[in-house]
Computed example of a mutant assay.
Amino acid sequence: MPLKDVTVTINIQKSSKLTGLGKPLILAKFTGESTYKNYADPLDVAKDFGADTVVHKLAKALINQGNTAPSKIAIATYDSAAEPAMTAADALRKFYDEDWYFVVSDTQVETEVKAIADVVEGKGVKLHGTTVTALEALTTLKGYNYDRTFAMLHTTVNEYAAEGLIGSVGSRGVGSITWKFKSINGLTPQQVTEDELKDIHALNGFAYVTKSGIPQTSEGKVLSGEYIDVIHSKDWIKINIEEAVQQVFVKNGKISYTDDGITLLANAVKSILKAAFDMGMIAEDSEGSPLYSVATISRVDTPSSDRESRVYNGLSFTFELAGAIHEANIAGEIMI
């Protein structure tokens, strides 16, 4: 991760510059030196990689999603025939700190997909999407219980469901959407029975199906069972609080180890939580007030060892996620 002096840890309890976190990265096999490059048009990808390549098809799936598509994608290359050989996971590690959030790959080899997922899981930030073509592959991935990988089961050849979904949804405002009920350009709805869809959902995967005559995603979860939008929101809040507090350090000549200095840090946190509330990530109470709080420990209550080392550990916050409604059970009554 980039160098920083601020670390935010968020635990999900169930019962400045605002980073968008929407840009996708493609990991692509290519002969030659490993590179990282931005693209805005699939035609430019075709020029560099060829029109019939998987990477070009992935680029089209990501970019050809209408008004909600990302303005740019990135491609990182790896050469598996080089000396020493490089894998997709190696390229991912090399370029992890670049400006992207969602990662996809031109490989569906089970061991390589797992290696990519392991890197993302180990880093603890960003998300990995993959398309599988069989329930067996989804079963294997589910066994790893990944918090940062989601998988769509899609059997139509040369269509990339998870990648198209990232292109359609990933660049929308964090907190403004759920990943269920979403339509994807260029994707064929799958013909699955209710029982087959239950089997897919039981593995925390999902599919692209037709409901009420509308093609749409059947769910929106990562493989651990958490919702994609929850992980996305958590990362947005964490990263933007880190950046906001870092800016306070940079823009002030000195933050004194006083209650006034502590208040400056707390206000930076509050500003991001307020933005998260405005974007729909944080819930509100019955009177419309945001359900978040920020707590601090006064200077007098901090350990002298912390003051000597110039580290403040007394700032914390809590919030309630707004969540989303994914199903409705409605009771009716006929009067005779």
Score class of each variant (00 low, 15 high):
114 K>M: 10
181 F>I: 07
146 Y>P: 00
162 A>W: 12
147 D>E: 13
146 Y>G: 01
135 L>S: 13
111 T>D: 15
109 V>D: 15
189 P>I: 11
133 T>D: 14
170 G>I: 09
113 V>I: 15
129 G>K: 04
138 L>H: 07
137 A>D: 15
124 G>I: 06
153 L>C: 06
154 H>W: 14
189 P>S: 12
121 E>N: 12
129 G>L: 05
112 E>N: 12
168 S>P: 01
159 E>F: 11
128 H>K: 02
155 T>A: 14
131 T>M: 11
160 Y>W: 13
150 F>C: 03
130 T>E: 15
114 K>H: 12
151 A>V: 07
180 K>L: 12
173 G>L: 05
169 V>P: 00
178 T>S: 11
153 L>H: 03
141 L>D: 05
114 K>W: 09
141 L>R: 01
134 A>K: 14
150 F>W: 15
154 H>G: 10
127 L>K: 05
145 N>A: 08
164 G>K: 01
161 A>W: 08
159 E>L: 03
164 G>F: 13
149 T>C: 11
156 T>K: 12
141 L>V: 05
124 G>M: 10
127 L>G: 01
180 K>G: 08
157 V>P: 02
110 E>Y: 06
187 L>Q: 02
186 G>T: 07
137 A>T: 13
156 T>R: 10
159 E>M: 04
124 G>R: 01
162 A>M: 08
170 G>S: 05
189 P>F: 15
164 G>D: 13
140 T>I: 14
116 I>T: 07
152 M>D: 07
166 I>P: 00
140 T>C: 00
120 V>D: 06
134 A>Q: 09
184 I>F: 14
185 N>K: 02
182 K>M: 11
182 K>Y: 08
110 E>P: 00
153 L>T: 02
154 H>I: 05
118 D>V: 08
148 R>A: 01
115 A>I: 09
189 P>R: 11
171 S>F: 12
126 K>G: 02
133 T>Y: 11
117 A>S: 12
150 F>S: 02
170 G>D: 05
109 V>G: 06
145 N>R: 02
138 L>R: 03
137 A>H: 12
138 L>E: 10
181 F>E: 15
151 A>G: 01
158 N>S: 12
189 P>Q: 13
184 I>R: 05
121 E>R: 04
111 T>Y: 11
185 N>H: 08
142 K>A: 13
158 N>I: 00
162 A>R: 06
187 L>G: 04
182 K>W: 07
126 K>C: 03
127 L>R: 01
129 G>P: 00
167 G>N: 07
119 V>W: 10
181 F>N: 09
163 E>M: 05
172 R>L: 10
180 K>I: 12
177 I>H: 04
158 N>T: 11
144 Y>E: 14
147 D>H: 02
163 E>A: 07
184 I>W: 15
120 V>W: 11
146 Y>E: 10
169 V>D: 07
171 S>M: 03
134 A>H: 13
122 G>H: 02
117 A>H: 07
169 V>M: 06
189 P>Y: 15
164 G>I: 08
136 E>D: 15
179 W>M: 13
161 A>P: 03
135 L>F: 08
115 A>M: 08
155 T>W: 07
151 A>P: 00
173 G>I: 11
119 V>S: 04
154 H>V: 04
165 L>M: 10
174 V>W: 06
148 R>V: 01
172 R>F: 05
123 K>V: 01
138 L>F: 09
155 T>S: 14
148 R>F: 06
120 V>H: 13
184 I>N: 10
154 H>K: 02
182 K>Q: 15
